[in-house]
Structure formats: C-alpha cells, structure tokens
Simulated scan of single mutants.
Amino acid sequence: MKLLKTLMAGAALVVGLGGMAHAQDKTKVGFVYVGPVGDFGWSYEHDQGRKAVEEAFGDKVETTFVESVPEGADSERVMTQMALSGAKLIFTTSFGYMDPTINVAKKFPDVKFEHATGYKQADNVSTYSARFYEGRSVIGHIAGHMTETDTIGYIASFPIPEVIRGINASYLAAKAVNPDVKMKIVWVYTWFDPGKEADAATALIEQGADIIMQHTDSPAAMTIAEEKGILAFGQASDMKQFGPNARLSSIIDNWAPYYIARTQAVMDGTWESGNTWDGIKEGMVEIGEFSDKIPADVQASATALKDGIVAGTTHSFTGPINKQDGTPWLAEGETADDGTLATMNFYVEGIEGEIPQ
C-alpha cells in the first residue's frame, strides 16, 4: 500500500509539472527581414517593433528573426523553418515575400502569417501596410518650399504601386506650393544597397537636385547629402545621425502597436485574417522633428497639412489631377479611392520619364 501511495504521488507530481510546463509555454513569434536590422531604415524599424513585442509580453513570448533574406525561394525556406520550429505567428516584412508567404501558409494552416505591403490573403494570412504616401505629402510640401534649384531628386526601389504612389504624392505636394518644381527619379532595383543608393544620390545631385528623397532602406543618400551640402529626408527611420545638417525631417514607420495587438490576438485566440492600411492618424506613419533650417511659416503650413490629413479634411490625392499623358484622372474636389491607390501604375501629369516595366 505504501508503495502504491508513493507511485501515485509520483504520478501526480509528474502531471503537476507537466501542467506547469504547459502553463509556461511561450508564444513564438517570427520576423523575416529583407535587409539587415542595422540598415537604420525599413528593417531596423520592423525590428524595433519586434523588441516592443518582447517588452510588452515579457516571458510570455519568444521572438526570433532572420535578416537579409532575399525575396523568393530563400524566404520560403526561412518561413518554413520558422513554422517547423514552433512559431505561431510569422511577420513577413517585404512586398516580394507575398507569394512565398501564401505558399508556406498553405502547408501550416495552424500558423498565422502577417505580410507587409502585399495584397494576397488567406484564412491564416493577413496583410498590413502604412499610408506612407501621407508622410510623403508632408515632406513634399516642405521640399517644394525649400528647393532653390526647383529640382527634387527621388531614389526609387522597385516600380510597384507603393513606390509609384509615394513619388506621385511627393510631387503633387511640392507642385502645389512651387509650380516650377521638377522631380528627377533614379530607379535602383533594390531595397537595400548602400553603394547603389549613394551612386543614385550623386547622380541626382549632378542633375541639379538640391533635395533628396528616397524609397530605399539605407541612410547612404543622407550621408551623400551631408557630404555635398544639400538637403534630404529620413526614410522609415529618423536618420538624423547620418546627416545632422542635411536632414530636414523624416518619415518614421511605427510598427510596434500593430505587432503588439496582433500578437495579443494570437495569444487570446481572437486573431482573424484581414487587411490593415493605417497612416498618420493611427500613428503607423510619423513625421520626424522639423529641422531649424525649415522657416517657421513652412513648418506651420506643413503641420497644418499633417493635421488636415489626420482630421480627414485633406487627402494627398485630391482633384483636379491628370495622368501623365494629360488624360483626366480626378475631377475638381474628387479624391482617389483606396482600390485605385493600391494598384497605382501611372505617373501624374508633370512628372518626366517612364515607369520601368
């Protein structure tokens, strides 16, 4: 009898320990980055969001990340390994991860996937992005006022709607305050390549640009602007440390609230597939501190523009606007709908050059 009681007590202890282990199971969350976390731009800010998840949930979560993952088959292998390693939620943070995300999600229906900047969804795949174009309207407004050569340079990554939308929004805002403004565009066909980005900035300066914008991920262009004595804007993160004299302001991506909310949803069992497209109002897009180089009246008008976007009284794409070939797009007072913006594949009137195919 004593032996039986001992065995039963031991069994109870094992069950108890098993229950404790189960209670202490962590929610594993994975992040896939297209660039290095030290790019001080796009991937850096996504990683700040990952760190915010750790801070918010402590030992209830375990996060992992893989950086500098090429878009394509390599990303599919990384996502698969994350799922096999027990990740319950995986954030895939670049447009080119769209099809790989869908492919891997089919193999792991119990894993939740969040794809940034894409448009394909599934029962276990959500999409999310930020209305970067709103921020580009604000910095375009500043650039239009500040350029002395009437020439703004723009470093573009890939000819996808997100990038084209940003070019158009920047140009329209600059044109609204400076009818003589021109925009020079260099396509670099990469998200992160400091050498190519630096070369593009140099080429734009040689074409007369005295202000540089970018839709790429490194601070290389800011560094060149600092060296050449011209002006620039931070992209994805503040970048002030790379151009303390050059930087006028910045567009800052703030992913932390979204990442925390979606992780909480997985932990609560309330996660559902959907599409999120937030902007300045929701705090996913932030405008960096204004440089003292920006005159007080321009700071005030840029702030008013931002406030109008937040209030919903101002839209980055408000007619009359024609397409590049002169055909009407938006009538007087008409604003672009999200469907058109999400698939934008044309320049607006006044922008020179062609969109690469």
Rank of each mutant, 00 (worst) to 15 (best):
T6E: 02
M8E: 03
A11F: 13
G16C: 14
L17E: 02
A21N: 04
A21R: 06
A21M: 11
H22L: 13
K26A: 06
V32Q: 00
V32H: 00
V34T: 12
G35C: 08
G35D: 07
V37N: 04
W42K: 09
S43L: 06
S43D: 04
S43K: 04
S43V: 09
Q48E: 06
R50T: 10
K51I: 08
K51H: 01
A52C: 05
V53D: 02
V53L: 06
E62Y: 05
F65V: 11
V66Y: 00
E67A: 15
S68H: 10
E71P: 12
D74V: 13
S75Q: 11
S75I: 08
M79W: 01
Q81T: 15
L89F: 03
T93A: 07
T93Q: 04
F95P: 10
G96W: 09
M98N: 13
I102H: 04
N103Y: 02
V104E: 02
A105C: 15
A105H: 13
D110Y: 02
D110C: 04
V111R: 06
F113V: 13
E114R: 10
E114N: 14
T117Y: 08
T117I: 15
D123E: 15
D123W: 00
N124P: 10
T127G: 09
Y128A: 07
Y128I: 09
A130C: 06
F132W: 10
S137L: 08
I139N: 12
A143Q: 04
T147V: 06
T149W: 02
I152F: 01
I152Q: 02
I155W: 05
P159M: 01
E162N: 14
E162L: 13
V163F: 03
V163L: 12
V163R: 12
R165K: 15
A173I: 14
A176T: 03
V177T: 11
P179C: 09
P179N: 10
Y189I: 05
Y189H: 14
T190I: 14
K196V: 13
D199P: 11
A201H: 08
T202E: 11
L204S: 09
T216V: 15
T216K: 11
D217K: 12
A220P: 05
I224A: 00
E226F: 00
E227T: 08
G229W: 00
G229P: 09
G234L: 13
Q235P: 10
A236K: 08
A236E: 10
S237W: 06
K240C: 01
Q241S: 11
P244I: 06
P244N: 06
A246V: 10
L248E: 00
S249H: 05
I251V: 13
D253E: 01
W255V: 05
A256Q: 03
A256T: 04
T263F: 02
V266A: 05
N275G: 02
D278I: 07
K281A: 11
K281V: 04
G283R: 03
V285W: 03
E289P: 12
K293A: 14
P295M: 10
Q299V: 12
S301F: 07
K306E: 12
A311F: 00
T314H: 03
S316C: 10
F317T: 07
G319W: 02
Q324T: 11
Q324R: 12
T327L: 01
E332C: 09
G333C: 12
D337V: 02
D338C: 08
G339F: 01
A342H: 02
N345I: 10
F346A: 15
V348I: 15
E349V: 11
E352Y: 07
